[in-house]
Write a protein that binds this DNA or RNA. Structure first.
Lengths: 196, 196
DNA sequence: TTAATCACATACCGATCGGTATTTATTACT
DNA sequence: AGTAATAAATACCGATCGGTATGTGATTAA
């Protein structure tokens, strides 16, 4: 691990907990044990560091889910893989300040366009991914053809992000657990074709 | 409207858009046209101002919903009143920076315990309110007795907050609309007793 | 009429902000 | 061994931060 990676490793959770404006250069030098000279030798400025820290947080919290979905066969199985991944999401991110996409979306919308756009794109990718899973399921006769893929993708992602937020607010993973159970037993169940 | 109210009126949307640390005293003096002397004559410090600004944001965005629910008769009607209120929520808060409960929860958790606790209590009140609506519905024979009130309250609130966030991220009120339709036609519908 | 009070403005405080120029130590190459 | 390149430390910059002490003009009460 080189110095840049070391800095990101130490700093990424801080950015996610305290936000972009809430994290100062002295927070960063304290956490790394390095000086400002070292920081600015490895990153062009604070925004550059924040952006790469966000990418690291995403690669730890969300990218594994995308990879898991990619290697899972079948639309219904992909959906179950998502809810299953989310069940352990609270433990995964609780010490890092919760869901990075959520944090940056709220934090950066009105004062860091570049950072916000990155989070926005990630959210779009998530929505589109869900939509395509459902559409593919319809094409492959796994999912009823009368299911609205876009609508249901929006509903499911809303539940994922909302339950993540509320578990985070109340230190209660049951918001996620209950919501994922609901997605499994009610939403995904309603996707299934009636057996003849 | 006295000076304190005038300041809060001007400053509350800024706090909600930029967050607590993201809003400086000069932002405040610029927005109000007043000087620091006037601000500190009306509020003891920045945290005091932020807390009261949060309360104002809540009183404009969320309190009306609580009042609407209070004057609505019947558990199912109360639930429909909530989803109906949410349908116009995006327009209600879009210029003010989104849902204040969501904003402060994310923003204040690790650097402003007092502010965070206020948001946390509000969220608890919301969860408890939903739970009691469902419980009352069961007692009054409006809702099936096998419905888990706490679980469903958590699920519904997750959907409300999550869809609000995503509409806010994508400037697309349809996240809220689709999710509220889903709550109406699937969740609340499943609460209803089967007609004999 | 004058003294006290009040609300806000002005002027100032030390601390910290993000960022940079310079110096120093280490490594790599010839 | 000597030199160039690199990486981090040091020292410093102006601007801004939240907060306060003092000044001032209007209002009120005696």
């Amino acid at each position: 691990m080189n110095t840049s990676e070391y800095i990101l490793d130490k700093v990424a959770p801080i950015f996610n907990r305290q936000g972009y404006v809430g994290t100062s250069l002295s927070d960063i030098t304290n956490a790394t044990g390095l000086t400002k000279g070292a920081i600015y030798c490895n990153f062009s400025n604070k925004e550059d560091l924040a952006l790469k820290a966000f990418r690291l947080n995403v690669s730890l919290a969300i990218t594994p889910l995308f990879k898991l979905v990619a290697v899972t066969e079948g639309s219904l199985n992909k959906l179950y893989a998502i809810t299953n991944y989310q069940r352990s999401y609270y433990d995964l991110v609780k010490d890092r300040g919760g869901c990075p996409m959520l944090r940056v979306s709220v934090d950066a919308k009105f004062n860091n366009p570049l950072l916000f756009e990155t989070a926005q794109n990630l959210s779009s990718k998530f929505t589109l991914g869900l939509t395509n899973i459902i559409k593919d399921g319809i094409l492959n006769n796994e999912i009823r053809p009368d299911i609205d893929a876009v609508k249901n993708a929006k509903i499911i992602l809303s539940q994922i992000e909302g339950s993540s937020l509320l578990s985070f607010i109340h230190n209660d993973p049951d918001f996620i657990i209950s919501t994922m159970d609901f997605i499994d037993f009610t939403i995904i169940e309603s996707f299934k074709k009636v057996k003849i």
